[in-house]
Design a protein around this nucleic acid. Structure first.
Ligand SMILES: [Mn+2]
Ligand SMILES: [Mn+2]
Length: 562
DNA sequence: ACCTAGCACGCACCA
DNA sequence: TCCCTCGGCG
DNA sequence: TGGTGCGTGCTACGCCGAGGG
């Protein structure tokens, strides 16, 4: 693995080691994807003095692009002014000199503005921060010079980061949290690892990511406008939404799943905002660009709203034919089964249902209170929910999940292979899976693999294994008390669509000497969700005792009235 | 994949 | 005055 | 009354301190 030290005493420039590693990694593997100008800037950067590179690395990790020089305090950087000069000379920083009066206000604290008399002069003693910024700027209140620098070339470093991680949310701090052991990652083979091999694809992915960011902003704005309406802002939002929607690219290379996944989510997000604004036809056309759930369901609902019954019916039939998403399927079958009658569920329930009256208290969760109750009845229960069978899956198939398939891993901080939730994840590893299923039919192999991987991998990130909420004993107990055909069927269902079927498992595992049962707790007002019903039925069909426990609050009859 | 995903909860609306 | 959020940090 | 739809909030490293209310 990587040899780093995050100890600032022993290695004051530890964070620069990380940036250097990342840039070097990118320069080696992605040189062909970088434009000549970009390569040039990266070389210039590496030739800068250490202080300058360190300052840049520090600022790159901070929020925003503008910084007050008088507020910079980094002990390891000996000559700050020199570092700033060097960075400015190579255009990695620029100096803001009076061109941005808004920054002169925004980067000062309220206390500072008060001391300068701005608040008193403009009657802003009780104003909020936002009002102050606006008013001081508007009134052009004279403020003394404030040295401010602007971070430049941010886009280039974002590009490098994107090439390294293959996503927008991981950054240099991964190096630190990993080195400190806060997150631990499986070691993966990075010999020929490349996240991208085509610049236009990188640009497309980054564009889609940016657009999703804007879509998220519009989403937030539309929620706000739903709460307190404002016609002017609604018009502006609709215009922005139209513009953004018109900009959505049509992918040239439809084989790249990273891009397609981003586009799917973008279409869904835009459709939802349109819906919230009541722009039904526009929402429909967004949803029609993707088959990712719940796009088809939203289509059906909107068509119904427009009284286009035959069209809605067709979409529902498509859902039942092509979608595995339990929510979509439940909706579609409800619609197609005609006018609903009470008590008639779309899918017959094969699990049992119980009622339990408890004196519910404030603090602990309903699930915990049921565990306490069961414990008072001498029954041992744990809140395992989505961690039990997926956890077993993760441990039994660990080496297959992290198998060195081409393109699956491209940096050292990988939680999961890039194609984990793609439809052909299993197909690309079909021999491995076939063999493993064979091996697992031996109870001895199951026991050995479970314990072995538990100890060998303990603490390493795996999307299916929640180390903190599980114990080996519990897993061994469940493996011992589940017939292999049932376990196999659960794994196969999981594998049929990992993203969809990794959730919806019952809350509690309740263990006795003879065997276990699974309990989904439903507090007052809580209801079964479609994917929960689907798993409950599936598990019950396998002969695993499965119960929904509806909790009713014990009403206190004595005490104060009212 | 914290620029998410899964879960519970609360309220409105309907027959 | 306290309390809360958020950003910086290892 | 139960069945729905839909919005919200919580939680994910944890500590510390500045800033704001
Ligand atoms: Mn639950
Ligand atoms: Mn529950």
């Amino acid at each position: 693995m990587l040899r780093f030290s995050t100890d600032p005493l022993a290695n004051p420039f530890y964070y620069l080691d990380y940036l250097d590693y990342l840039l070097d990694f990118v320069a080696c593997r992605y040189q062909k994807l970088l434009h000549p100008r970009e390569q040039e800037y990266l070389i210039n950067f590496q030739y800068l003095p250490k202080d300058a590179r360190a300052l840049y690395a520090r600022l790159l990790q901070r929020k925003g692009n503008y910084f007050r020089v008088d507020r910079l305090e980094y002990r390891e950087i000996e000559d700050l002014d020199r570092a700033i000069e060097d960075l400015i000379a190579q255009q990695f920083l620029s100096s803001i000199k009076g061109q941005r009066p808004d920054l002169d206000v925004r980067l000062r604290t309220k206390a500072e503005l008060a001391k300068l008399g701005a608040l008193e002069a403009l009657n802003l003693k009780k104003a909020s921060r936002g009002e102050i910024d606006e008013a001081v700027l508007l009134k052009n209140y004279p403020l003394p010079f404030l040295p401010i620098i602007q971070l430049e070339r941010v886009g280039l470093f974002e590009l490098c980061q994107y090439l390294f991680f293959g996503n927008r949310h991981q950054n240099i701090s991964e190096f630190i949290t990993a080195d400190l052991g806060i997150f631990r990652y499986e070691t993966v083979d990075l010999e020929s690892a490349q996240a991208f091999d085509d610049r236009s694809l990188v640009d497309a992915c980054r564009l889609v990511d940016h657009m999703r960011g804007w879509a998220a902003l519009l989403d937030k704005e539309s929620r706000k406008l739903n709460r307190d309406p404002d016609t002017e802002r609604t018009t502006a939002l609709a215009a922005g939404l139209r513009t953004l929607t018109a900009m959505v690219p049509v992918p040239e290379d439809t084989r790249n799943s990273l891009l397609l996944r981003g586009l799917d989510k973008l279409h869904l997000a835009l459709g939802q905002v349109h819906e919230r604004l009541g722009l039904i036809p526009e929402a429909l056309s967004c949803y029609q660009h993707t088959e990712r759930a719940p796009a088809r369901e939203r289509c059906a609902r909107l068509l119904l709203k427009q009284n286009q019954y035959p069209e809605a019916r067709v979409v529902c039939e498509q859902i039942l034919q092509h979608s595995v998403d339990p929510h979509e399927r439940a909706y579609a079958s409800r619609q197609l089964s005609g006018p609903k009658r009470t008590g008639e569920a779309s899918e017959t329930r094969r699990f049992t249902t119980e009622r339990l009256i408890l004196a519910l208290t404030e603090g602990p969760s309903v699930e915990q209170q049921v565990i306490n109750y069961l414990s008072s009845q001498n029954q041992l229960a744990q809140h395992t929910e989505n961690h039990l069978y997926p956890g077993l899956f993760g441990l039994f198939f660990w080496d297959i999940i992290f198998a060195p398939i081409a393109g699956a891993f491209h940096h050292p901080f990988t939680r999961q292979p890039a194609d984990l939730f793609e439809p052909d994840f299993v197909r690309c590893r079909s021999d491995l899976f076939r063999l493993r299923f064979d091996e697992l039919s031996s109870s001895r192999f199951r026991a050995a693999t479970l314990a072995q991987n538990w100890h060998a991998k303990k603490g390493l990130s795996n999307p299916f294994v929640a180390w903190h909420s599980l114990e080996l004993d519990t897993l061994e107990y469940v493996v011992d008390h589940t017939p292999w055909p049932a376990l196999k069927a659960i794994f196969e269902r999981l594998l049929s669509q990992l993203q969809t079927f990794r959730s919806g498992f019952p809350d509690l595992l309740c263990m006795t000497a003879e065997g276990y049962r699974l309990i989904e707790v439903k507090g007052p007002g809580d209801r079964l969700q479609s994917h929960q019903t689907a798993w409950l039925n599936f598990l019950a069909d396998l002969g695993i005792p499965t119960t929904v426990m509806h909790i009713e609050a014990l009403i206190e009859t004595s005490g104060k009235s009212g």
